[in-house]
Design a protein around this nucleic acid. Structure first.
Lengths: 193, 193
DNA sequence: CTTTTTTCTTAAACTATCTTATTGTTTATC
DNA sequence: GATAAACAATAAGATAGTTTAAGAAAAAAG
């Protein structure tokens, strides 16, 4: 069954009933992606929920000066979607791009709403998923307005140990909101302690 | 009915049925608060969802150096709760404090879970509320890692015009992640343009 | 396996932001 | 209505972070 990875992920929260599993299975499509492939670009509307089965993606914005700013990484069992664009039906201003060859599952917008209407378990599971994402993001806001770059970097390493071995420091710098040059200085400082 | 303000707020999304209204009404308690009153302090667990009927509250953290960092403001019809502490049953490290005399409605943790189990409309409405909060917060993360203080301040004024007339610049500075002195410099710079 | 692209580090000059301190003004509190 | 507390503006010196540039190392692409 194509939707198995999502079903297993939900089983950590509220396992789906057979009926819901069948509906989900009919709503999911798989997509194999090369490195540096885009599933969303500015100007496009985000019309899918995307779930990473294998690989790694980043969501980022390019500002007026051409600088990139990473908003989110997604690895195995993570969801990555521009919810603002998805729900408000507005063009996104974000890129979502693979950092590695990846395999993802997608649910089209209409199907997402059908899921919600067909079983309350979808409302519940997606509520819990977004709550967890909100909680993590709140910690990030707090860190960004209150901590030094060194603290933010060390927190990132501790929080996402598997990620930090998988992506470059350029990507990490862009996530914690600092230039790669300055991150390099911080790394040296940490190393010589 | 005590829960009317919440019921009306939900009616913007998915209006409750009579049965759900009755359950909600039995789950809600009101609380009148003076200025500078706390509904959450570090070390306590967040055991309620809180909804502001009248007044204004802030959620903030005090760091090791004693500096305060505002994470969220809540005015009429906003929810304010430490979801991390609420769901993970861990002591909070945040304060939630009134900035004005206020009147709030609260739902105890057990009652929140009962609501979820008694009607799917609660899962759905709270899903939508947290989704919207997530989307707003994502914009804030992006701004904080990519924009200048001036841009962040102007965005705040534009986004929360009613709030910015209601709270001091000290509070705004603490929200956008800058010292009040520096915000003052930015304000002069904007004024003399 | 070779070429091209990306990454990492270093350094110096520059800019943004913080710290500390002072003063006048506004806002709460009793 | 008087007093205390919080707020806003300003300035000088200190620290944190950026910019630009360059070269060596590593990784990706053909």
């Amino acid at each position: 069954m194509i939707a198995t990875p999502i079903i297993e992920s939900f089983s950590n929260y509220w396992p789906l009933e057979d009926k819901a599993i069948e509906i989900l299975n009919n709503s999911v499509t798989g997509k194999k992606l090369k490195r540096k492939a885009f599933i969303l670009k500015p100007g496009e509307e985000c019309n899918h929920f995307s779930f990473v089965v294998k690989g790694c993606l980043k969501m980022y914005k390019v500002d007026d000066k051409g600088n990139r700013h990473n908003l989110q990484f997604a690895i195995e069992n993570n969801w990555i979607s521009d919810y603002g664009s998805f729900y408000d039906q507005e063009p996104s201003d974000l890129y979502v791009e693979t950092l590695e060859p990846s395999y993802i599952l997608q649910i089209k917008k209409n199907d997402v709403f059908s899921l919600y209407d067909n079983s309350p378990l979808f409302d519940r599971n997606f509520r819990i998923i977004i709550e967890n994402a909100f909680i993590e993001q709140q910690k990030r806001v707090l860190q960004t307005i209150s901590s030094t770059v060194e603290e933010r970097y060390l927190y990132f390493l501790k929080k996402y140990p598997s990620l930090s071995n998988r992506i470059s420091n350029v990507q990490i710098a862009s996530y914690i909101g600092v230039t790669p040059e300055f991150l390099s200085i911080i790394r040296r400082k940490i190393a010589t302690k």
